[in-house]
C-alpha cells in the first residue's frame, strides 16, 4: 500500500519513525566522526619520528614513547604465546572430543563468565594472584599473564565457531583413510579452521592494545626504556604500555599534546586491527 493513501495518523507515525531511525544512525556515526576529528585534530601534530623512536629525555626535554611501544608489543606476544595453545586446545576439546554434555555446558558457562568479568576485576586478580601471591611484582609478565585469562574466552569462542563450520565429511574422510583422531585434527580440522584462529588472535591483540585498567595496576608506571636482552631481564621488565602512558601523560603530567598523540596512534591501531579482523574472516574462509 502506498504511504500517501494511508490515513493521516499512520502517515505521521511512519514519517516520525523513519526520521527517528535516520537520526539515531546519524547520531551514532556523528559521534564517531566527532571523536575521530577531535583526536586527530589535537593529536597529529604531536606525532613525529623522534617521538616514535626514542625514550623521553628530561635532560633534552624531548618526549618519546618507544618504551611504551616495546612494552605493548612484549605484552601482546607473551600473552598470545600462552593463550593461543590453551584457547585452541579448549575449543578442540569442546568440539572434537567432549562427549559429556554437562561438562561442555560447564566449560561454556565458565568461558561466558570470564568474558563478562570487567577489566577492573581482572586488575584486582592480577594484583592479588600474579603480583603478590606468585611474587612476580609489577612486571610486564604479570600483566601478560592476567591478560591470558582475560583473552581466553575470545580465542575459545572464535576457534570453536570456526571448528563447527568444518564439514563433518572432512573428518569422516580422514578417519576412513586410516588417520588417527589427533592426526585428523592436526592435518584436516585445524587447517580448515585457521580463519577463526587468526580472527580470534587479532581480536585478542586488539583487546591487549586497548586494555588499560589491568595494565595500569600490574605492569608498573615507568616510562623509561626496559631491558629485553635476556630472559632474566624480561622477567623484571616493568613499564607503561601505550594506554597506560596515555593516562599518565593526560592525568598526572597534564601533557595533552602527547596524550592526544598517543590517542591518535591507538585510534590508528584500532582501525588497522578492525580491518585485519574483517579481512582475515573473509580471505581465510575455507580453501
Amino acid at each position: 500500500m502506498r504511504v500517501s493513501q494511508l490515513p493521516m495518523r499512520r502517515r505521521v507515525w511512519n514519517l516520525g519513525a523513519r526520521v527517528l531511525l535516520y537520526l539515531s544512525a546519524g547520531l551514532t556515526c556523528g559521534l564517531l566522526v566527532l571523536l575521530i576529528g577531535t583526536i586527530c585534530a589535537r593529536g597529529i601534530r604531536g606525532i613525529n619520528w623522534q617521538m616514535l623512536t626514542t625514550a623521553e629525555s628530561v635532560l633534552r626535554g624531548t618526549v618519546g614513547i618507544l618504551p611504551a611501544i616495546q612494552n605493548t608489543l612484549f605484552v601482546i606476544v607473551l600473552s598470545l604465546l600462552i593463550v593461543l595453545p590453551l584457547g585452541v586446545g579448549a575449543a578442540v576439546y569442546l568440539t572434537e572430543y567432549a562427549k559429556n554434555h554437562r561438562l561442555v555446558s560447564l566449560i561454556e558457562f565458565a568461558t561466558e563468565t570470564l568474558a563478562g568479568i570487567p577489566s577492573i576485576i581482572y586488575a584486582l586478580v592480577g594484583v592479588i594472584i600474579f603480583c603478590t601471591a606468585l611474587g612476580l611484582q609489577k612486571t610486564l609478565v604479570s600483566g601478560a599473564l592476567t591478560l591470558v585469562i582475560m583473552n581466553l574466552p575470545t580465542i575459545i569462542r572464535s576457534t570453536q565457531e570456526s571448528l563447527k563450520t568444518v564439514p563433518q565429511s572432512y573428518r569422516e574422510g580422514a578417519l576412513a583413510l586410516g588417520s588417527g583422531k589427533w592426526h585428523m585434527i592436526r592435518t584436516v580440522v585445524l587447517p580448515s579452521s585457521i580463519d577463526g584462529i587468526v580472527t580470534g588472535s587479532i581480536l585478542a591483540i586488539g583487546r591487549v592494545v586497548g586494555e588499560s585498567a589491568v595494565l595500569m595496576y600490574t605492569v608498573g608506571l615507568s616510562t623509561a626504556m626496559q631491558d629485553f636482552s635476556s630472559l632474566a631481564a624480561m622477567m623484571k621488565a616493568s613499564g607503561a604500555t601505550l594506554t597506560v602512558a596515555l593516562y599518565i601523560y593526560a592525568k598526572e603530567r597534564a601533557d595533552f599534546t602527547t596524550a592526544f598523540a598517543i590517542a591518535t596512534i591507538l585510534l590508528g591501531l584500532t582501525v588497522v586491527i578492525n580491518g585485519a579482523a574483517a579481512l582475515a574472516g573473509k580471505k581465510l574462509k575455507k580453501v
Binding site: I39, R42, G206, T243, Y247, A250, K251, L267, T270
Partner: peptide, 16 residues
C-alpha cells in the same frame, strides 16, 4: 570502530 576505541581514549576526549 566505536567498540574498538580504547577506554582511555574515551576518557581523554571526555576530560578535554
Amino acid at each position: 570502530l566505536l567498540a574498538g576505541i580504547p577506554s582511555v581514549v574515551y576518557g581523554l576526549v571526555g576530560m578535554i
